[in-house]
Computed example of a mutant assay.
Amino acid sequence: MNIQQVQDSFFKLRSNRVFEFFVVGVIIFSALVIGAKTYDIPDYMLTLISWLDSGITLFFLVEITIRFIGEPNKKAFFKNPWNIFDTLIVVVSLIPIQDSEMALIGRLIRIFRVLRMVSIVPELRLLLNSLLKALPQLGYVILLMFIIFYIYAAIGASFFAAINEDLWGDISIAMLTLFRVMTFEDWTDVMYETMAVYPLSWMFYLTFIFLTTFAFLNMVIGIVVNVMENEHAQEEKERAIAEGDLTIEDLSKQIEELKQMIKDQKS
């Protein structure tokens, strides 16, 4: 068997759905092993878990090797950030640091192995990529939300500090209190306490909740959903082009639609 045949065999193996599901199962089992270490268990169980952890690390090494050998373009393998992430996690997990000062970092690296689920499952990759691409738009929404928080916190600290110093003593504490109000964590107790002195203070809380919880959070959800739809549409186009199901005319038309969509978002 020559090198090309080995590469083709490994490419088929890494593209096999059964193999992908098996890798996902090992990742889930790895997460369970990490969780088991947090319990007070006998020494023999700790020894067994240690052997299982070593076996999982060895399996991940074999799996990343199969993916690398099965990659037709070896240079393109490390152009993918997820492949770099997986490789770093596996390589660092191989370093024997259990009894050294770096043991804590070693345990943290093994915890991050659960994130390999994102690199394996395409739907999770799409979700995370959409969140990352939505960050520039979300940044302005978060900035505007911070301004609203700051204004309301300044008002609350000015009027309600004398009522409850623990909740409204200064602007930073007031912002934490407002976060509690936004998440509906016993916010009525805070409101009724100030209403005993300022009967109309309910307007302060209701307007804040409508602006933050109902308005801004829905804006955040809308932005993320919109970016996810665009990412999904782009992925479908690329798949159609790769499979030859998309004609040049269809491609040109969809590119124009995409340009118009981007122009509308900017405006």
Rank of each mutant, 00 (worst) to 15 (best):
T247Q: 04
L246K: 09
K253S: 10
M228T: 09
A196S: 15
E236G: 02
D245N: 12
Y198L: 00
T183M: 12
L251E: 12
E257N: 06
V224S: 00
I221A: 04
G244P: 08
F214D: 02
L211F: 10
Y198V: 02
T213L: 15
I221Q: 05
E165C: 00
Y192T: 09
I171C: 04
G222A: 14
F179C: 07
S172L: 12
N230F: 08
M175K: 11
V181H: 03
Y198D: 05
T177M: 06
R180H: 04
L217F: 13
D189I: 07
S252L: 11
R180G: 14
V190A: 12
I171E: 12
F179W: 10
F184L: 11
M182F: 14
T194F: 03
H232R: 11
K237H: 11
S172D: 09
E256H: 00
K237I: 15
Q234C: 01
W168G: 07
V220W: 03
E229F: 12
D250G: 06
E235C: 00
W202V: 03
D186Y: 02
V190M: 12
L178N: 04
F210R: 04
E257A: 03
M195Q: 14
A174Y: 01
D189L: 14
E236I: 13
R239D: 11
V224C: 02
T194M: 01
T207F: 11
K253E: 07
L200I: 10
M228V: 03
V227R: 10
L176R: 02
F179L: 14
V225S: 05
W202P: 02
L211S: 13
W168A: 00
V227T: 15
T213A: 14
L251G: 01
M182L: 13
E238R: 13
F179P: 00
N218C: 06
E256Q: 05
L178H: 00
V197G: 03
G222Y: 04
D170P: 09
W202L: 02
A196L: 12
Y192E: 07
A242K: 14
D186L: 06
